[in-house]
Design a protein around this nucleic acid. Structure first.
Lengths: 229, 229
DNA sequence: CCGAAGCCCTGACACTCGTCATCTATTTAG
DNA sequence: CTAAATAGATGACGAGTGTCAGGGCTTCGG
């Protein structure tokens, strides 16, 4: 059985596996929305009535629990989907999505999207594969996280940032986007202070370098090695 | 949009959403296998060429990393699926499944199962929903786990045991199956010793009671309360 | 009957990490 | 320009947990 290639954007999937009639219907019914940095695209617990595709911008997806405690589950960039986790029995978003920079998204009504899934077998099949892959990643994360110390988890947060947002186009070691220390802490599942210390330590080891509030990745390989134990 | 009910067994899904011709084909091509307690149904990293449906027995699904370190991701009982996480780009099992008691399973060849998914749109649609739900659960688990202390995580492991295996049919407070202390530790993502201490503490609080190696759940509500914070 | 091998349990200790308190640098507002 | 607010950074300390070492109880085979 040969592996089936996974596109990581929903837009691709729609283009490739939906009939033209359905593609037009989607294009017609979806609404482009804009959010300023810090604004919420959707809120944890609210009814999942839209599926969002990031057109341009950067977004964090997280869930809150307890006062002041958050965990960032992932970042999202251009072309990626938001809100698909609302699909299922509950039909409420289990997470909140917040724009990190000014961001435009296309909002597809959820009932329409479910119709598309039921009417386009090939699209549904590939969407299922997309979920399977997300599940695999999520469980990989879950099993790793308890056996990693703070430094490893912060390294992981930095690598996740690189993988999602990449490097500055003029400076191939500088992060294209540096999340705030608090966001890195929320991704690493630790506190602000511990994150600061971990960053400081990683700097001493010459794996990274602070440039004001931004971060430069000096040795990506060592960082990836570190986070895998 | 009304919620779509989720069956938790794959057998139900097949019965409900596959055409009779495909059902017969599955029945014809699947092979019943038996495993003794302690035997592996499939191994992490090996090619995912079969999908398993538990006919009768109890199974743990876990992944290993490092010497002697394991994390149990879930338990499985009669009617539940094993190996579906092998579906996707990689087509290797990301986890190992081991029988906890003598267990019989039906093995469906993966290529056949993929054909079934492509040929039965309604089945594929519901299978996608099944994945969506698993993903939601997985992420809920992932976000909670770092903010829970050992006692809470052990409580969670006990509740998970109840939810999967239920109580003894003659004694409605005694677990129908008590995992070993080591398995509870692996589920809770902690050490054997810390698990012992947590169990000891839960006993002092009269939430549970040791009966030899078995465990009696005295106050399920308090346990569930405890694990939610 | 006895020894070996599994489990289950307990105590001591060191170390990690979260909490609190403080300081500096940069940005924003008046 | 000064004051206030925001973000980054560092030190001190204690609770929670992993590690190590040891002891008891049951099961199994000789």
């Amino acid at each position: 059985m040969e592996p089936i290639p996974l596109p990581d954007t929903l837009a691709e999937l729609i283009a490739r596996h939906c009939s033209p009639a359905w593609r037009d219907l989607i294009k017609q019914q979806c609404v482009t929305q804009h959010f300023d940095a810090g604004q919420d695209v959707f809120l944890e617990g609210s009814p999942a009535d839209q599926l969002y595709i990031v057109r341009k911008g950067r977004v964090k997806v997280f869930s809150t629990f307890g006062p002041g405690t958050r965990r960032i589950l992932r970042f999202a960039r251009d072309g990626q989907v938001l809100g698909h986790r609302g699909i299922g029995a509950a039909f409420t978003y289990p997470v909140t999505a917040t724009a990190l920079v000014p961001t435009t998204v296309d909002a597809v009504p959820m009932p329409l999207f479910m119709q598309v899934l039921e009417a386009n077998a090939a699209f549904c099949f590939h969407f299922m594969l997309f979920f399977a892959e997300e599940l695999r990643r999520s469980e990989e994360q879950a099993r790793n996280i308890l056996n990693m110390d703070v430094q490893q988890r912060v390294a992981k947060a930095l690598i996740a940032t690189v993988r999602c947002f990449g490097f500055d186009k003029d400076d191939k070691t500088l992060l294209a986007f540096t999340p705030s220390r608090q966001d890195l802490a929320d991704y690493a599942g630790t506190t602000y202070e511990s994150t600061i210390r971990a960053i400081s330590e990683l700097q001493k080891q010459k794996f990274i370098k602070n440039v004001g509030r931004e971060i430069r990745i000096l040795d990506r390989k060592k960082l990836e090695q570190l986070m895998h134990g």
